[in-house]
Design a protein around this nucleic acid. Structure first.
Lengths: 215, 215
DNA sequence: GCACGAGTTTGCAGTCACTGCATTCTTATA
DNA sequence: TATAAGAATGCAGTGACTGCAAACTCGTGC
């Protein structure tokens, strides 16, 4: 029953409350600094009880970090596995970037979050940790790509290690790219940053900028 | 006055207390799991007040993680900068490994710490964060190496980015290598693991396993 | 020996994040 | 409209951590 954007008053209210609290929290943190804001302050500004706050977000960080970035779409994953480019790392990072960008509907809020995360070491750490949690999943994807390319764990005994290493490296790259991204003040195209990052990787890890195909 | 290992009763007492508390903490955490151990429990076992505990270690994690790993010796740093091997990443990771290993005088305790860190995501995260804090310092080292090799920021405008990217990648590698290291149950030579890691990097990032020299 | 001062340990009160549980609304539905 | 499913809230409690002031201990000069 009812339209698509809202089924039920309940849902709508929940969403509204959530949004109100998030905005309040981000605004407060932007003004006073994350660790000078107490959960109680957020609750007052968001007009909910502390208990409700924790029901919604689970932790103080949770409200700033926002919901955990969604996994790449099946389609993107499939492309990564079956249509490999010249460079695992590049492809992987590009895929992740694609799934991270555009998560938050409100660009204003999105930027505010990024800003806070960048300037608050504690938050930056947590954000990285969150990415880290998906490591297992990702390394399985890389492994799938390897298999699709005909490489087997029998021919290459440490293929699993190699997959995990790809993820480890990619994490590093994302670390770097995220930092760069947060640094720029205008919403420059992430694509460009990514391109630069991948260039750097090539330069650092061997084949000259022109050599091209590897893996 | 007195011998070299101990100047003053005060110092000695401090060291003893510190050791007692650390051992107690690690033992308790090993037995009950890090987050089921309270600071009060540690204090009781370590025979100090809670206040003293925090004076010593600053936080609950602090007592498990141990003192922050020392920076590489000047000598090691100099070698890294002025006697470059074939691979920045490899050299860097090797240098770090050298400065991390052998920090803790008591191998028993050392292993226990590693074990705890590995099995406690929270601690693992913090450990990585601690490494991350030294990023600035390290990227300056890499930059120095670049300069020593005759590369200037004028000829290569994003040389600083490149240095930071090296660190980012290295962080990833260390992440991977640490994990592998913690996994093995016998105190296998880190050198070997490192070698394997560096092999993987080569394989992933371009030039085939045999090509050799790069950078 | 001893007194005095710097350096330490401790108790205590308080803040803040976070949790479990019982109670009180609200919304959906029969 | 009664009633159940679903939230929101209050409250009491735990556990990490901090500031402050009082008590204590070691090192020194006498």
């Amino acid at each position: 029953m009812s339209s698509d954007t809202s089924d039920g008053l309940r849902e709508r209210k929940r969403a509204a409350a959530r949004a109100t609290i998030e905005r309040a929290a981000v605004e407060l943190a932007l003004e006073h600094g994350y660790d000078h804001v107490t959960v109680d302050m957020i609750c007052e500004a968001g007009m909910v009880s502390q208990r409700t706050f924790f029901n919604y977000f689970g932790s103080k960080e949770g409200v700033i970090l926002g919901q955990t970035p969604p996994l790449p779409t099946e389609e993107a994953a499939d492309r990564f596995v079956n249509k490999p480019g010249s460079n695992v790392l590049g492809d992987f990072v590009a895929m992740i970037a694609g799934s991270v960008v555009g998560t938050e509907p409100d660009p204003q809020l999105f930027r505010a979050r990024r800003m806070l995360i960048q300037r608050t070491p504690e938050l930056f750490t947590k954000e990285l940790a969150r990415l880290g949690e998906m490591e297992d999943h990702f390394s399985r994807m890389v492994l799938a790509r390897f298999h699709a390319a005909g490489r087997t764990s029998i021919a290459v005994p440490d293929l699993e290690d190699e997959a995990r290493m790809v993820i480890a490296l990619a994490t590093g790259v994302m670390h770097h790219t995220l930092r760069k991204w947060f640094e720029t003040d205008d919403p420059a195209e992430p694509q460009q940053l990514l391109g630069a990052s991948i260039d750097l990787i090539r330069r650092i890890t061997g084949d000259g900028p022109s050599t091209g195909t590897s893996e």
